[in-house]
Each structure stands twice: as structure tokens, then as C-alpha cells.
Design a protein around this nucleic acid. Structure first.
Lengths: 165, 165
DNA sequence: TAGGTTTGTTTCAAACTTGAACCAAGCCCC
DNA sequence: GGGGCTTGGTTCAAGTTTGAAACAAACCTA
């Protein structure tokens, strides 16, 4: 089967995309490291928790929501727990389970650092996009994500967990 | 100064974008690790070298082209050199300088693994985008990259180096 | 209900990344 | 032509990521 190479336009788009994502993650990581003392991923984990009723989520669900592996999440939560921003609680109804809970201190960090983070994101991206482009970006991203999330090709990324009670 | 929060649409776009980039990098890293024995970044470094006359580039320029820090590049090239895919050469005209050169073996790896890589990229992205969306993605990415590359805010990322002779 | 499989999470070692500190080699300019 | 600043690149320690293996609890199912 002969390779379906990228067209010239696709290549340009792909290269531009790679460049943009590298530069963007760099800039955001740097800003958050400065002002919140943690990389973007860790900030996102806190944000994902703050986003959900009770500020608590099963590890697997939090990993799913954050689009990262469980292993990576374990490490991250351990660090955040050490910093007092997150707490782990066992799950009564399933003794294997572990639930990450955002602490008050974690919430406070989020509240304190959110403005700077949003400002960075805005300056890096949204200030340069028209409203139509914002819509396009969402559609494109959603399409890519959907394709990569369909069951068939992700044995290594688990489906969601029954709620803990 | 009151925070300019993201609008609902911007938030949706931002979240979708984060999800897509995480999933995408994961998928591509995984595929390349399998078939080329290296992460995406390292593959890109080889590709960037193959892309340029003589398959050689000053370290700083290669870092610039790859959108990564010099430090990160040093580590990567050291590994690739160990694998025999890249060779370092001194620069006669500037004894500080170091030039990375793609070896024949490095080129061979690229040739062997390119089809699989392209197929993955295509399956993950371009098969799900209309031609218009490809154009939009390029414009959006270029806009973001340009904003983040403007001199004023990147003291930590160097400008290009005089060609080596 | 014992044995086998699946599921939720952690652990471990090896690989990679980060940023600051360092080391030469060029550059400048009095 | 000898300081002092800049530049190209590497090094180092601390932090993060990876994937496979380990573990324990839950879930079958004969």
C-alpha cells in the first residue's frame, strides 16, 4: 500500500501547528511556573477538580478528564498533595478506588493565579484570533479529539468509572 | 486592572484545543516510539535536518527551527549521536560553534519510518478535516506562533546564527 | 465459594526536560 | 592588547514522564 503523503498545504498546516503548540506550551508552562510554582498540567488538574461538583473526582476520571495516563496523574497528585493543594480520600464503596479532592488551599491558589493565567492565554492566543477563528479552532480540535478518543484505538486509556459513594 | 476572562466560546475552544493536543502528542509519540524507537521530538529533529541543504545545521539554528531550548536540543542530539543517527562537527570559522549533521543511517531511519508516521498523522488529523479547515488550522497556528516569536517577549530563545564556513 | 479474570491504582527504573550556572571563544573599545 | 560584555553550547541537579510490572480489591462463573 503506497503512502498517502501530505499535500503541500497539509504539510504547511502541520508544521505551523507543531510550532504553535511547542511555543504555546513553553510560554504557558513558564508563566505558571513563575506565578503558581507548577507546570501547566498540574494547574489543569486543579482546574479540572475545581470544575466539578464537590471538587472531587476518582483518579481514573480525573485522568480521563485531563487526557493523561493514570500513571502520570498518580505522580502529579502525589506532588500536589505534598504541597497541600489536593487531598486523597479512599472510596468507601470500592476499596480499590482513590478520590482526589481539591483542598481549600488548592482552591485559593487557583483563585489567586487564575487572572495571570487567563491573561497569558489571551495574550498568546485569543487576542490574535477573530471570533470566527475561535469557532474554527474549536471545531478542528473537537474533530481531532473525537477521532483519537474513539474506543477502537485506545486500549491504553480507560473509560469512566462508576461514581463513588 | 480587572481580568479579561475568556468568553464561553473561547473557553470551549481552549479546552478542546488542550484535549486535542494532549491526545495527539500521546498518539504520535506512541507510534514513533514503537516504530522508530524515539519520541516525536527526536524524529522532528532528524526531519528538520533532512530538510535543509547538506543535512547540517548549527545547534542554535536547529533549536530555533525545532522550537525548543538549546539545552533540550543538546540532550537530544547526544542521544541521537549515540544511536549513530546524527554526528556533531566543529565549526572552523567559529570555534565555539557545533554543527549537527544527519548521518546516512539517520536518513535511512527517516526513510524507513516516514510512511508510518505520515499515516498516523493523516489518520489522527487530516482525514477528519476539510480542505478549508486545513487552511484555517494553518492560519490560526501561524498567528499564534508569530505572536509568541516576536522578539520582545523571548529573551530565552535566541535569534539565528551566522552560517558556518 | 474457590479460582481466574478484570479493574483501579501505585511503583519502579529508565528516559527526558528544565533553568540556572558554567565555560570558552568572539567582540568591542578605550 | 587587556579588561569586560556577548554569544554558542554544554553541564548539572532536581523535577517530570514513560510503560511495564506489581498489587489488591471486585467480579465472575463453574
Amino acid at each position: 500500500m503506497t503512502t498517502r503523503w501530505l499535500t503541500a498545504e497539509e504539510q504547511r498546516a502541520w508544521r505551523a501547528y507543531i510550532a504553535a503548540t511547542h511555543l504555546l506550551e513553553d510560554a504557558i508552562d513558564r508563566q505558571l511556573q513563575q506565578e503558581a510554582g507548577m507546570p501547566h498540567l498540574y494547574y489543569s488538574i486543579l482546574a479540572n477538580l475545581s470544575d466539578v461538583p464537590d471538587h472531587r473526582l476518582r483518579m481514573t476520571d480525573l485522568a480521563e478528564k485531563s487526557k493523561i495516563t493514570r500513571s502520570r496523574l498518580t505522580y502529579a497528585v502525589t506532588r500536589l498533595e505534598k504541597d497541600g493543594l489536593v487531598r486523597r480520600e479512599g472510596c468507601p464503596s470500592d476499596k480499590r478506588g482513590s478520590t482526589a479532592v481539591l483542598t481549600d488551599e488548592g482552591m485559593a491558589v487557583l483563585v489567586r493565579t487564575a487572572p495571570g493565567h487567563v491573561e497569558t492565554v489571551r495574550a498568546a492566543i485569543f487576542d490574535h484570533l477573530t471570533p470566527e477563528q475561535v469557532g474554527q479552532l474549536e471545531e478542528i480540535s473537537t474533530g481531532i479529539a473525537r477521532a483519537l478518543e474513539t474506543p477502537e484505538d485506545v486500549p491504553w486509556r480507560r473509560r469512566s468509572t462508576p461514581p463513588c459513594s
